[in-house]
Computed example of a mutant assay.
Amino acid sequence: MRYSVLLTSRMLDFIDKIQGIEGFASLREISRRTGLPHSTVWYFIDKLAKYRIPLTIDIDISKIGLSRHVIVLNKRVELEKVFKPFLGFYAPALSNKTFLLYYIPTKQLNEVLSVIKRKLRETAEIYEEYPICFEYSSKVNFKEYFVKGEVVFKWNCMRTKVMENFKNKLGVSGKICEQHEVQHKFDGVDLLILAFMQMYPFERLKKLVNKINMFLKSHGYSFTLTYSKARYHLHEHIIKRGVIRKFRIMASLLPKEKTYYGVLMLKGDLDKILSVGIVLTEHPSFGRLHVSKAKKTGLIYFAIPVNEASNLASFLSETGLDWDILFLDRFKRKAYTIPSELYSVFTRSWVTRSK
């Protein structure tokens, strides 16, 4: 399918290089590692955002004491009626269901999850749920799948890569744990910085602090974040502890009117699920893979042209996995940052009760 923007070879090189940077890097550091002038780096970042290919930070939420939990409701529920504390993603499904992703404090998992379920059952029944214990996303390969202004799907090539992964027997499923345990202390300042960095990953720290303080003031907080405190937390609590894994591409290249948007549900052997996920997440039309070991299920977000749907179905049928697709309403979806406002700076714990 044709796209309205032609990415130059230099921009494609930049996308490839910035995805290869481990951890967090300032604009100056990105300039050094990519070999591009500071002004060119900023120009590319701005252009990509305008082309609907924004960059954000990839956070290891286990290191700030959070776990992901997916809940599918048995009917379509409007956002206004959904329980919002700890909500990370909302999208009504076209099949009269509702897809929800929550960020839940790991150490208070049962307590918070029981509150969420109780609140949700006031409006709908829970159809399915998936405790997510592992996530994976490959480096998006724009050089291979974005050719002359067109998103291409090389299904035969992708099949070959999957079969090679099957033969190599990745053997990574045994390394997937059921729950993540936070390895160090964190606080509300860390969470605030991370939440705003998700929205403004390349903002200078002084400007980021100003945005945070405006948010605090508008919400009635008496606390004011100083630049020195923010700088200390960013470097000592976030960067040094590897909370930010890398920069991540959030590609949304295709016209909404001619696109199927949804979640793939792959069920079966975890090694096979990961083998397929590694290949699919290299393509700009597929998002990250979330794995539920308890349910032996992998979830992958996607947005593909309508005329590629049958090819996707054929590709999935050859993997040997059971699979299903939950088509979502792309126009009504809503994503949220990590729930920083639910962490009490006074008790140093998560606020789990809701009115």
Results as ranks from 00 to 15, higher is better:
I21F: 04
D58S: 13
R33I: 07
E122D: 07
K97V: 09
F315L: 09
Y260E: 13
T106R: 08
K143H: 11
L321W: 04
K246H: 15
Y51T: 00
S137G: 03
V147H: 12
S62R: 09
L264M: 06
P92M: 02
E22K: 15
I278H: 11
A93V: 07
M158T: 06
I239F: 05
F315M: 06
H237M: 05
E282H: 02
T297Q: 07
R159S: 14
D324C: 05
K272I: 12
I304F: 06
T123K: 14
V189P: 06
Y343Q: 03
K217I: 10
R348M: 11
L205E: 02
Y130C: 07
C157T: 12
E282T: 05
L289A: 02
I338R: 01
K161E: 14
G149K: 07
R231H: 12
K50C: 08
E125V: 01
A25Y: 02
R159H: 14
A313S: 10
F331I: 14
L216E: 05
R121N: 15
K217T: 12
H235E: 10
T337A: 05
V72E: 12
Y102V: 11
L194G: 01
E22F: 03
G171W: 02
D13P: 14
C177P: 08
R68Q: 15
F215V: 06
S349D: 14
R118M: 10
I61L: 05
K84A: 13
G320M: 07
S222L: 10
T297R: 08
K267V: 15
W323D: 13
E111R: 10
G88A: 15
Y343T: 01
T259Y: 10
F24I: 04
S67D: 09
R159E: 14
T224D: 12
Y227I: 14
L101W: 03
F146N: 02
A294H: 12
V279E: 06
F89W: 10
L27R: 10
L73E: 13
I71Q: 01
D58E: 12
E308R: 09
G287H: 01
L191V: 01
L192E: 02
L342M: 09
V82F: 04
L253W: 07
L48S: 06
F196Y: 03
R333N: 09
Y221D: 06
R241H: 11
T319R: 14
W350D: 02
P105R: 02
L234D: 07
H283E: 05
D46V: 14
Y261D: 10
I126V: 11
M1F: 13
R33V: 04
S340W: 13
R33F: 00
S39A: 15
L55N: 03
A230S: 08
L289V: 04
L274N: 00
H69Q: 05
R241T: 11
M1C: 00
K258S: 14
I304S: 00
V182M: 06
L234P: 08
Y261T: 15
L7G: 00
L254V: 08
R231N: 11
E135C: 00
S285Q: 09
Y336I: 05
K17P: 06
D322K: 12
V5G: 01
K148M: 03
F247E: 03
G171I: 00
H219Q: 03
K107H: 13
K84W: 06
T337W: 02
L289K: 01
I45S: 05
T352Y: 13
E111G: 00
R28Q: 15
K169M: 08
